[in-house]
C-alpha cells in the first residue's frame, strides 16, 4: 500500500527539505520505490538538495493544471534508480495549486510508488495545507527551541482537523523528528530537552538528528546527506529513522557530546 507522508513544521528553516531528501534517499536505499514532491511553489529548494536542478523541465504546477503528464515531470535520481523527484515551479506561487488538482496527482503517484514524501512549505497557508491535505502520515520537524515547538503544536492541530483523513474521522499518524540537536548546548541547558519537547507535543518520537556540518556540506554538493557520507552522525540518525518508518524496531540514540582530541588535552577553555 502506498503511503503518503507529509514533512511539515510550521516554522521555516528547521530542516524540512533536508529531511525529505535524506529520508527519501534512505527509504530508496532500503529497496522502496520513493518519490519526493516539492510543495514549496515559488521557493523551491528540493531540486537543489537532490542535485537535480539542471534537469527540471516540467513541474508539479504543470501536472496539477494538466499542461504536462506526470511521467514527463518526474525526474529519476542519478544515484538511485528507485528514487524520483517531482519538482515545484519557481515562477508561480501557491495560488496555482488546487485541491482537486493535488488530489489527482497524489492518486496517480500512489499507483506508482510505495512512498510519497511531500515537502511542505513553511507557514499555515494554502501551500502547507494542500501539502498535508491527502497525507496518511506526517513527520513534524522540530528544533529544540520554544518557537519551533509551539509552531509544531499548531501544525499538529491542523493535521488533526484540516486533512482528508481527519475530516473522515480517521487519524493521521504523526511522528516528531527533532533536528539540529546540539549535544553541547543541551548539556549546558541552553536548549529545550527532548523530554520537554515530547511532553509539549504529546506525539511519538521518530528520531533525533544532531546539528552537523555534514548536513550543510551535503546540501552544497546537491546530495541527500544519507547518500553523501553514510557514516556521518546525521546520516546514521536519518537511516535509523527511515528504518523505524518501515516498521523496524531501532533503539533511539540521543546524540552525546564528543570532545575533540585538543579539547580533551586542554580541558575547558577559560571564558
Amino acid at each position: 500500500m502506498a503511503k503518503v507522508m507529509v514533512v511539515t513544521s510550521g516554522k521555516g528553516g528547521v530542516g524540512k527539505t533536508t529531511t525529505t531528501a535524506a529520508l527519501g534517499a534512505a527509504l530508496a536505499q532500503g529497496g522502496q520505490n520513493v518519490v519526493v514532491v516539492d510543495f514549496d511553489v515559488g521557493l523551491r529548494n528540493l531540486d537543489l538538495v537532490m542535485g537535480a536542478e539542471r534537469r527540471v523541465v516540467f513541474d508539479l504546477i504543470n501536472v496539477v493544471q494538466g499542461v504536462a503528464k506526470l511521467p514527463q515531470a518526474l525526474i529519476r535520481d542519478k544515484r538511485l534508480e528507485n528514487l524520483w523527484l517531482l519538482p515545484a515551479s519557481q515562477t508561480r506561487d501557491k495560488d496555482a495549486l488546487t485541491d482537486e488538482g493535488v488530489g489527482r496527482v497524489i492518486t496517480e503517484l500512489k499507483s506508482r510508488f510505495d512512498w510519497i514524501l511531500c515537502d511542505s512549505p513553511a507557514g499555515i497557508e494554502r501551500g502547507a495545507t494542500l501539502a498535508m491535505r491527502y497525507a496518511d502520515e506526517a513527520i513534524i520537524v522540530t528544533n529544540p527551541e520554544v518557537s519551533s515547538v509551539r509552531d509544531s503544536d499548531r501544525i499538529i492541530g491542523m493535521l488533526d482537523s484540516k486533512t482528508v483523513k481527519a475530516e473522515r474521522g480517521e487519524h493521521v499518524e504523526k511522528h516528531v523528528l527533532i533536528t539540529r540537536y546540539d549535544p553541547a548546548r543541551a548539556a549546558r541547558g541552553e536548549m529545550l530537552s527532548i523530554e520537554d519537547i515530547l511532553e509539549i507535543l504529546a506525539t511519538p518520537l521518530l528520531g533525533i538528528i544532531p546539528e552537523s556540518q555534514d548536513v550543510l556540506k551535503a546540501s552544497n554538493v546537491g546530495t541527500p546527506v544519507t547518500l553523501n557520507n553514510t557514516d556521518s552522525a546525521p546520516a546514521r540518525a536519518y537511516i535509523d529513522a527511515s528504518r523505524r518508518l518501515m516498521g523496524e524496531e531501532v533503539a533511539m540514540v540521543v546524540p552525546a557530546e564528543r570532545k575533540s582530541f585538543m579539547n580533551r588535552l586542554l580541558g575547558r577553555r577559560a571564558a
Binding site: 520554544v146 503544536d153 499548531r154 492541530g157 509539549i200
Partner: peptide, 27 residues
C-alpha cells in the same frame, strides 16, 4: 480527550470544559 493545540480555540458558553491532556501555548 485529546490535547488542545496551539492556535485552537475552544468556546463553550453553556457550562464546564474538561480537557484530558494539555492545553498548548497559544491555545
Amino acid at each position: 480527550d485529546s490535547p488542545v493545540r496551539s492556535g485552537q480555540s475552544i468556546v463553550f458558553m453553556e457550562g464546564d470544559v474538561t480537557v484530558v491532556g494539555s492545553v498548548g501555548s497559544g491555545a
